[in-house]
């Protein structure tokens, strides 16, 4: 009887020990809560990908990369129509809108727009790649979820977070690839 009680107590203590967050993590959470409810809520609701990128300072160990890429790829949704090349005119609106694509923050686009960032590669004349199925698919998936190709990249997962819909993603693809798009005409 006594032995059983000791064992149960031992197991309970072990369980408690395993369920505790580290003191550092607890302190970090307290700091986040000090920042206010809304701030803490966003900072504490990281998804698995965000948590891994934070933990490894954006440089994932090699053995984690295949699983990470597969999980990110599984998050990609496609338009019901199956068409990955949409309407470039609407694509330009999404591309430019700071609340949706916000692409000029980092990329050069239409050559006449000089107020563009330099953190991403220039997209001017992107359409030179042609419109083979593989190019269209890569472009679609990269825009929808950049982390399906480059883990923890600065380029964020606009499609995954709903900043634009699958249809709008196809419109962005068209803005980059359509020969009539101003990205490809000077």
């Amino acid at each position: 009887m006594k032995r059983l009680a000791v064992m149960v107590a031992g197991l309970v203590l072990l369980g408690l020990g395993l369920s505790q967050v580290s003191p550092f993590r607890a302190r970090l959470e307290a700091v986040l809560h000090q920042g206010g409810h809304e701030f803490a809520q966003v900072m504490l609701s990281q998804d698995k990908g965000q948590a891994l990128c934070s933990q490894y300072r954006d440089k994932l160990p090699a053995d984690l990369i295949p699983g990470f890429l597969a999980e990110q790829k599984a998050l990609i949704k496609y338009p019901q129509s199956g068409k990955l090349l949409g309407d470039w005119k609407n694509g330009e609106k999404v591309f430019t809108d700071p609340k949706r694509g916000n692409c000029y923050a980092c990329h050069a686009g239409v050559a006449s727009e000089v107020a563009h960032g330099t953190m991403g590669p220039p997209l001017t004349d992107y359409g030179q790649r042609g419109t083979l199925e593989a190019v269209v698919r890569y472009t679609y998936e990269k825009i929808y979820n950049a982390w399906a190709y480059v883990p923890c990249s600065l380029m964020y997962r606009g499609g995954v977070h709903g900043l634009f819909t699958p249809e709008e993603t196809a419109d962005l693809v068209a803005f980059l690839l359509d020969p009539n798009s101003p990205i490809n005409r000077r």
Partner: peptide, 23 residues
Amino acid sequence: TRAGARDMSCAVCHDQYAGQRVR
């Protein structure tokens, strides 16, 4: 810490891409 709908952290811009421009 990377968080929010733009997957951002301070580091990803201010370390990795320091010297570049946002707009």
